[in-house]
Amino acid sequence: MGSYIVKRILVSVPLLLIISFLTFVLINLSPLDPAEVVLQAQGVPEITEELLEQTKEELGLDKPFILRYFDWFISSLQLDFGESYINGKPVWSLIGPAFLNTLKLTLISSIAIIFMSILLGVTCALKEGQVIDKSIRGFSFVLTAMPSYWLATIMIWYVSVKLDLLPTSGMVSYSSYILPVIVITISYAGIYFRNIRSSMLNNLNEDYVLYGRASGLPEKKITMHILRNSLQVSISIFGMAIPIILGSTVVIENVFAWPGLGSLSVKAILGRDFPIIQAYVLILAAAFVLFNTISDIINAFMNPKLRNDL
């Protein structure tokens, strides 16, 4: 198991290198001249050729492409992503706190999603075809089908405005988390619990369940065995869900005015603030690699057959 973990981590290193290179290439393929963007942002009235050359030199844009990549990559490893083209502040001082805010929201939502998915999935599988199974599936179908911004708006109107129970927006106290977490959980758990349900139903027909029952094991213990085997598929899905939520909170963050990555990245894209966009893409990609690695390791821990596969 130890050697599997080491190998799995080593595999992710070249992956990160490739991703960082692609990120850099794609951003640099943009037809916009960064020097021009900087000058426009600074409100320079007349942009001359001379001024452009000078700015390029200041930003290090005159160096060869590969050199620029390595400079950027090495400093990125030290969380130095350069300075914002728009306001000249270090990128990390802008993206760091925003990332932390989004991460908090994402992790709390993920815990809620995993908890709800397992709870609903197991309940539905054990009560397959009964009223409770059908009503949970029906109700979740309706909730999942609602766009999250609409659901969020309704909740703000009802819970925060009409009942005046929770803050409408921002990140002021712990109670600020409740509404965004509920909205995110509804849109994801409604999908994931079906996954757990169906893989539990598949496992119910396995021989080991029959043998467990034939050996007189109590249903509780058998359910634990089924759950352990059913969760293996879901762990990979949950592992991917965390970075997906991290990257897709844009809508929720805008509705709830959450000071996170989503709001920051939208601003950066509209303002063509390349260093921030680059850092944003790299951080998200790293998060994907990281959570994928973690879920693979957890899976190998739960499924002994996977340990020899690398």
């Binding site: 080991y208 029959l210 043998y211 467990g212 034939a214 050996s215 065995h225 499924n303 057959k305």
Partner: peptide, 26 residues
């Protein structure tokens, strides 16, 4: 009674045990 009085032995040993646990667990 299951197991203690009436004991079943299945056709395929490969699938009769939980694949994620060592056989000692069962």
């Amino acid at each position: 009674k299951r197991g203690k009085n009436l004991c079943m032995i299945l056709q395929n040993g490969m699938t009769a045990f939980d694949p994620s646990c060592v056989v000692g667990v069962h």
